[in-house]
Design a protein around this nucleic acid. Sequence first.
DNA 1: TTGAAAGCGCTAACAA
DNA 2: TTGTTAGCGCTTTCAA
Lengths: 333, 333
Amino acid sequence: MADVARSAGVSTMTVSNVINGRPRVGAATRERVLAAINELGYQVNLAARHLRAGRTGVVGLAVPELERPYFGQLASRLADRFEAQGLRIVMERTGASREGEMDAVAFSRLRMYDGLILSVVDIDPAELAQIRTDAPVVMIGERALPSGFDHVMMDNVDGARQATAHLLATGARRIAMLGGDPTGSANMPALRAEGYALAHTQAGVPMEPDLAVRCRFRLQDGYDEVRRLIERGIGFDAVFALTDLVAIGALRALADAGLRVPDDVQVVGFDDIDEAPYLVPSLSTVNPGHEEMADAITALLLAQLNGGGPTRDPQELIVPAHLIRRGTTKPVD
Amino acid sequence: MADVARSAGVSTMTVSNVINGRPRVGAATRERVLAAINELGYQVNLAARHLRAGRTGVVGLAVPELERPYFGQLASRLADRFEAQGLRIVMERTGASREGEMDAVAFSRLRMYDGLILSVVDIDPAELAQIRTDAPVVMIGERALPSGFDHVMMDNVDGARQATAHLLATGARRIAMLGGDPTGSANMPALRAEGYALAHTQAGVPMEPDLAVRCRFRLQDGYDEVRRLIERGIGFDAVFALTDLVAIGALRALADAGLRVPDDVQVVGFDDIDEAPYLVPSLSTVNPGHEEMADAITALLLAQLNGGGPTRDPQELIVPAHLIRRGTTKPVD
DNA sequence: TTGAAAGCGCTAACAA
DNA sequence: TTGTTAGCGCTTTCAA
C-alpha cells in the first residue's frame, strides 16, 4: 500500500480511502490511486486488515468428516443463511477426535473466525466447560452438555423412538440396531439406542442383545454388520440404522442375501439425507429437523456476533425430529 | 500478550518464546509465564501472527457446492494429504458462479490462505488469465484453459466415451444423455457430450437429438428428465447420466415407471461416488481417477508453496478415467 | 479533501 | 537467558 501511495503521490490513508470506497476523496486523486493500484497489481492484505478490525467476516463450521452427506447438506443450508448476512462459511474437519475438536475451538479463539459452529463428537464435556473463550461458538449435534455454550441438538432419543415404534407397529418383532454404542452415555449412538429401547418398553416387546450391533457410520459398516448378522444366523425382521449411510449399506447386504425390502426385512435410517427419497426402494428415515436446526444455529450465532460474545445465558435448543415413511417400511396395519 | 508479560514480570519476547516452545528460557521463568497465561486466559492472536509470518498454514478448497458428494469426498482425500504436511484444508463454496469463483481467488490472494484449490465452473478463461496473482493456486475440474495456472483435470471426454461405448457394446442403441449442454464448449457437460458423440461415431451408431437432455446436476433433475422422456414417449434403452447424482435420480424415475434396470434400460453415471457400489442395483459409473487427482493436486500445490509461488511453467495434467462396470449395465455379449 | 501519527499483536534480529 | 527495537500492512483519530 505504501508503494501505491508513493507511486500515486498521496498518503497511504488516501489509498485506504479509495480502496474502501469512502466518500471524501477527490475524483482526480481517486483516478491516480486506482491507476497506481492497477499498475502495481496491488492487493489488500487481509491479515493486516483483520488485525486492525478485530474481525474476519468468516464463520467456521467444524464437522467430524467432510464427506458425510449430512454435514455437506447442513453446510449448504448454513451457507445460504450466513451469506445473506454478508458472512462467509468455511468448513473444516475435526476427524471426530478430541484433538481435532479442541483445535477447531483454538483456531476460532485465535481470531481466524468471527464465530464457530462445532459439531462435537469426542470431546469431553468437562473439558469443554473448561475452555475459556469469549469467541462466539455454537455447538451442535449431541445431547445437553454442561458446557456453557449455546447448543442446538436434534432430538436423537425421540427420533429413534419414533423409528422403532413405527417398525413395531408394522409388526416387526426382531429389530436389529446398527450403530448402537452400549458404552457411552452422552453420545449420539447411545441416545439413539435409548430411543430404540424406549420404544420397545412402551410396546412391551423384549429386546434381544444380539440384535444391537455396534458399528461406525460408513456405508461399509452397515453392509458388513448386516452380512455378519445373516451369516451368524441371527434372525431379524427389521433394521434400524443409526444413520442413512449405514442404512444404504444395510440395504445392499439385504439385497445380496436375497431378502426383500420391506416384505422380508424393513429398514429405517436416520438423517433424511437428500438421497433418501431417490433410493429404490426409497428410504424411510428420521428427519432431524434440518431447516429448523439451521435456523436456530444461525440465529444463536448471529446473536452472539452482534452481542460481541456469549453475553446471554447459554441457550439449549432441542429441535423436534419426525419420521418420514417411505418405501423401506410397511404401512401400519 | 503485553498483559501476560507485565503480570509475569518479563518481556513480551519471553512470553512469545514460552508460547512457541523455544528452548532458551529458564525453567522458573517459563513457569511464571505459564501461570500468568493461565490466570489471564490469554490466547494468541493468529491474525497478528500471520501478519508477521506472512503465512497462515491454511489451504482453501473452493467448490461449486458443499453438498455434492463428489466434492465432499475429494475434500476428504485432500485433507488427508495436506494434514500430513501440517496444513489445514478449509472448504468453501463458490455457488458455481463467476463472482463466487473470483471471490475465492481474491480471498486467497488476500492472504487468508497460503494456497487455493479452485474448482472452476463458470469463470471465463480470458478473465482467469487476467487475474494477476502470485499466490499459489491449482485449478481443477474442467478442460485445458489458457489460464496460466496449474491445472488438474479428469479426462471427461474419454470417460464419457468409455461409458457410452460400453453401453453400445452391450447392445444399447438409443442412449439418453442427461446433463449434456449443447451450448458451452469448454465446460464439463460439453466435454462429456463430446465423449458421448465420439463413441457413437466410432461405433457407427447414429445419435438422436431428442435423447440429449440438458439438465443440472441434482437428484431431482435426473428424476424429472427421465420422467419427461418417458411421458413424451421417447424410447430409450440406456441412460448416460453426466453425474452419479443424476443417475440416482434417473434410477428412481425408471423404477417408478416399472422399467427394470439393466434389462429394460441400462444406466451409467459419472464420478464413482462412494455410494455407487451400494445402490441396488449397484451403479456402473466412470471413476475419474480420484486418488491420482488428489495426489496430483497436492503435489502441484506443495511445489508452489515451497517454491514461493508459481515459479515453474504452469503444469496441466489430465488424469485417466476408467469405467467401473456394476449392476446397472449388462455384461458385454 | 488530504495527511501524519499511532498502534492493532506478534516475532526476527540483535543487544545486554 | 532475557530484553529492546523495529516493523509486518492496515485503519482510526485528529490535524492541516
